[in-house]
Design a binder for these strands. Sequence first.
DNA 1: TTAGTTTGTGCGATATACGAACAAATGTCA
DNA 2: TGACATTTGTTCGTATATCGCACAAACTAA
Lengths: 251, 251
Amino acid sequence: MRETDFISGFAKGLSVIEAFGEETSRLSISDVSGITGLERATARRCLLTLAQLGYADYDGKYFTLTPRILRLGHAYLSATSLPRLIQPFLDQLSEKVGESASASVLDGNEVVYIARASQRRVMSINLSPGSRLPVYCASMGRVLLAALPEMEARAILDASELKAHTKYTKTEPAQLMEELRRVREEGYALIDQELEIGLCSIAVPLADRKGQIVAALNIGAQAARTTLKDMTGRYLPLMREAQSSIAGILS
Amino acid sequence: MRETDFISGFAKGLSVIEAFGEETSRLSISDVSGITGLERATARRCLLTLAQLGYADYDGKYFTLTPRILRLGHAYLSATSLPRLIQPFLDQLSEKVGESASASVLDGNEVVYIARASQRRVMSINLSPGSRLPVYCASMGRVLLAALPEMEARAILDASELKAHTKYTKTEPAQLMEELRRVREEGYALIDQELEIGLCSIAVPLADRKGQIVAALNIGAQAARTTLKDMTGRYLPLMREAQSSIAGILS
DNA sequence: TTAGTTTGTGCGATATACGAACAAATGTCA
DNA sequence: TGACATTTGTTCGTATATCGCACAAACTAA
């Protein structure tokens, strides 16, 4: 690829969109310039472009994103068949065990939810397709990492800020790599309150016909209501079923 | 705003992202050029830029979007506080009535889901935050249109392709405008199998403290399991409760 | 007011988009 | 199978639009 095959104006614009976040929903031109590192003049041009296209609102001082932005993410969710194909299995699974079931894929050092069937809400966090969790302390993250060559998994862990979300969170790379070996061995990952106190979850990998791991499937439950034994004893067999059914329908 | 305050390369790039959809998840350079109307050379540069940034994969022939694209939509969902604030009420409502509850906002002539608490799946369509429905035949769409000045509502209807999804779908603009007046009067909208056979739904508007309508709230149910009388008799009072609670917490 | 901060503008240097021409791959038909 | 037609991808020179900088203007807060 040649130098000129890269449109820097486009790349800069995308970084401007990503500058908006939970704590930063109303941004001035200078704010965006500060967050993205772009020149103020450039940030301004990107923001005005977004506003002109209807992706952002501008009150003369602050910019906010509009729901039109969701078209971009939705282009992916409706474009890839994975969520559509998996959803019925999540619904079924979630109904059977009375807990939430989700599916996710890997993006960098984060797990991205692509589908979810939620029963009652067990977490303080509100998860929906597009939500992200750090890969090292989520059950689906462990499963997806375990599916990679050790080198790559290690590289992702090294790129992660291994923060202890609770007193149970495993944060030592060596310890995590050891855990990945166990996951690879047993074929499932179990997380006990490593992400949030009171929450445990179990995950298995989802493979296509070629055996390639393309996503992960999990069930999350309240620690108070479910024992770890329940999870491996009652949930895991049902997940195994879903796992093999899904393997059959994925090309 | 000056001519030079618009970055056409950025706008073109965004249109390339939107070119990907349900039926068009794997696109060649020429495909994108055809869909967007961009020059092949320009489409290629946009696609290569997306690939270089990790937003797309390229196998030498076809491009596909990667989950990283979800960051863009998620920038909105996590940036705006509306979904976060509304979610607990949806959960509660959904639990009480045993049916799905959702919230949405208006974007052009479509309704965009921003939050959802789903019980069992009643529709063939799989709805999640970011999903879109045509405004004219969705209960939340009716409510959101009714909140606009008649002129604007009419303009949106005129811009819509008023397609009959079922034999019950109302497609006459005059008939729809009349229905909007009724909705404005009564404060709720009821849809009986206009979008999909077997599905009915009821919606109410959500206002902030200033009385500005900022979103809509609905409950969807299977026609076989629920009578229309149930919806106005049992669901509506509960929705009214949620409506006023939410009005209290929205600035 | 004045200093500090944020936003808007003009301009030269530079990078991008266009259109066309070329190259490569694919499809078609005898 | 081979030769031609068609579609698709890539390259290139040039006209044009964008970038980043420096400066001007508007706003804030003592």
